[in-house]
């Protein structure tokens, strides 16, 4: 595994597009967090007296996780580019020819998936602490941090979808379009239709499962949540999607012509 990570490092070390996108994706998190906190504090002070300050601990964890879940798609794009590059340059073949097993190729891309997710969690955690300290009025506390972990899980689901699309579609352009379309619209649309015509089960779609656990704080407090499964159901759903996605990626890479 060390050898694989070292090889992946060599691939991106001098790849400017990668670093630019990574930086942008990471900056968006604190930027988004601070922007919302600033606007809200400025404009809605009356409301916050009513429902409490969403930027104080422990509420800040949910608030920030909820905001972050809207602005994390860039990491998916980054992963798609790392995957489809290999197909564009046909280096996916060359890596195997030169002496990787096919599964090593999957490990290499799973490494990025995990690394991007962890990096995001760390940046999101630091950003939330800063927001809580600056805009909140209670001392730092990790009570309610589980919302960040739900966000982390949702991020992994999102990255698994990106990886799967990249491996199946192989071409950067089409993969990005499909991913963005699913991420921004399709998942919500299907959720909406399912919830309307079938029922609560509509909340169990891949990205929606995470969203169900990350309601926007103020809304969540005001809207009754009767059409809702227990938390563990959504967590289980997300774990199933991750396992299924990674299984499909392995199957595709191990079985098909490269």
């Amino acid at each position: 595994m060390k050898q694989i990570i070292y090889t992946e490092w060599l691939k991106v070390k001098n790849y400017r597009t990668f670093w630019a996108m990574l930086l942008l994706a990471l900056i968006i998190i604190p930027a988004g967090n601070f922007m919302v906190a600033d606007k809200f504090t400025e404009n809605l002070q009356q409301l916050s007296k009513l429902v409490g300050n969403p930027f104080s601990f422990p509420d800040v964890w949910l608030t920030m996780a909820s905001i972050n879940s809207y602005i994390s798609a860039l990491f998916g794009l980054l992963l798609i580019i790392l995957v489809t590059n290999e197909y564009t340059y046909r280096t996916n073949r060359q890596n195997i020819i030169d002496g990787w097993e096919r599964k090593h190729f999957v490990y290499a891309k799973l490494f990025w998936l995990v690394l991007l997710a962890l990096l995001t969690l760390i940046v999101a955690t630091i950003s939330a602490i800063l927001v809580g300290v600056i805009y909140g009025n209670k001392p730092v506390s990790f009570e309610g941090y589980e919302y960040m972990l739900y966000y982390f899980l949702q991020l992994i689901v999102m990255l698994t979808i990106a990886l799967l699309i990249g491996v199946l579609v192989k071409r950067a352009g089409l993969a990005i379009v499909l991913f963005v379309a699913y991420n921004m619209m399709l998942d919500q649309l299907l959720t909406f239709l399912l919830k309307r015509y079938v029922g609560t089960v509509g909340g169990l779609l891949p990205l929606q499962s995470g969203d169900e656990l990350l309601p926007f704080p103020l809304v969540g407090k005001m809207v009754a949540t009767s059409d809702h499964y227990d938390t563990y159901v959504y967590i289980l759903a997300m774990l199933c999607y991750i396992i299924l996605g990674i299984f499909l990626v392995f199957r595709k890479i191990l079985k098909s012509d490269l």
Binding site: T7, L10, K11, K13, N14, Y15, Y89, T91, Q94, D98
Partner: peptide, 15 residues
């Protein structure tokens, strides 16, 4: 089959 954005040397490092 090589990474277009890397130099010849860097590509051989990967190989």
């Amino acid at each position: 089959n090589f990474y277009h954005y890397l130099s010849g040397y860097e590509n051989l490092e990967i190989s």
